[in-house]
């Protein structure tokens, strides 16, 4: 991995105001958990909604979307990507560095609050399961959203459509769509590590792991290919 690119990417991400958008959802998740726990309500009444409905369905994909489209998309938008591309670097080095930063920041930002929620709800094992599931989801989402920032000029919009329409809406109506849902892979991983009644899995573990790999590697390969053909917008002055 190219550490120079990873360093610039991470500093660029932390230096933008957009980074502040990462924190409200984890804070909200923790506040809801503490409030429910403090009120003495049994976890099976609220934990599925908080962990699945809020954590995996909203928090993880939104954080991944902000970070995944930010690591390269922001540089494309402001033109700074040219400084990195005008170097004799194989394009896969650039994409791998961006991917590691995106997946790493997404995983840490989402896994830490989810681990705390898991411990508060059930046990340390459940917390670890949620954290590992966040890591898996972070890898899958980062591959997809990084590729989207090179495939479309509106990666955030397309990413939101995937999360809201495909995963949230169609995933509840058409069960077949769950095979292509990173959200479902996270639930499967959680259930495999800490089986309980709070989280239900709809996809087999081998399929979930394999498909996460497909999203990650496929997204990376697509991004590498698009970056090789990166064109500067056609001003003709």
């Amino acid at each position: 991995m190219n550490l120079t690119i990873a360093g610039i990417t991470a500093r660029g991400l932390f230096g933008r105001r957009r980074f502040l958008l990462l924190f409200p959802l984890p804070v909200l998740l923790l506040v809801l958990t503490l409030a429910a726990k403090g009120a003495g309500v049994a976890p099976d009444h609220w934990a599925p909604s908080v962990i699945d409905g809020m954590g995996f369905a909203v928090m993880v994909p939104v954080i991944a979307l902000i970070v995944g489209t930010g690591v390269l998309g922001s540089e494309i938008d402001d033109g700074t990507v040219v400084h990195i591309l005008a170097k004799p670097l194989p394009r896969h080095q650039i994409i791998v560095a961006k991917l590691v930063v995106a997946a790493g920041i997404t995983a840490v930002t989402s896994a830490v609050p989810m681990f705390i929620v898991g411990v508060l709800v059930d046990s340390v094992r459940f917390g670890v399961a949620l954290a590992v599931a966040c890591l898996v989801a972070a890898l899958g989402y980062s591959g997809v959203f990084l590729a989207m920032s090179l495939l479309t000029r509106r990666p955030v919009l397309v990413g939101l459509l995937y999360v809201l329409i495909w995963e949230a809406l169609l995933g509840n109506v058409l069960t077949g769509t769950r095979v292509l849902s990173i959200h479902q892979y996270a639930l499967t991983v959680t259930h495999a590590i800490a089986p309980n009644d709070l989280i239900k899995a709809h996809v087999g573990l081998p399929a979930a792991i394999a498909m996460t790999g497909v999203f990650l590697v496929g997204g990376a390969l697509l991004a590498i290919d698009r970056l090789r053909s990166f064109s500067v917008a056609g001003e003709t002055s």
Binding site: I8, R11, T80, V82, H83, L85, A86, R91, E235
Partner: peptide, 23 residues
Amino acid sequence: WRNPGIYRHLGLVSEREAVHGFL
């Protein structure tokens, strides 16, 4: 085109002023 190896011999100052301002 599609050949990053050229940048070993090539220096480029583009018209667009964008730089990583935080560095």
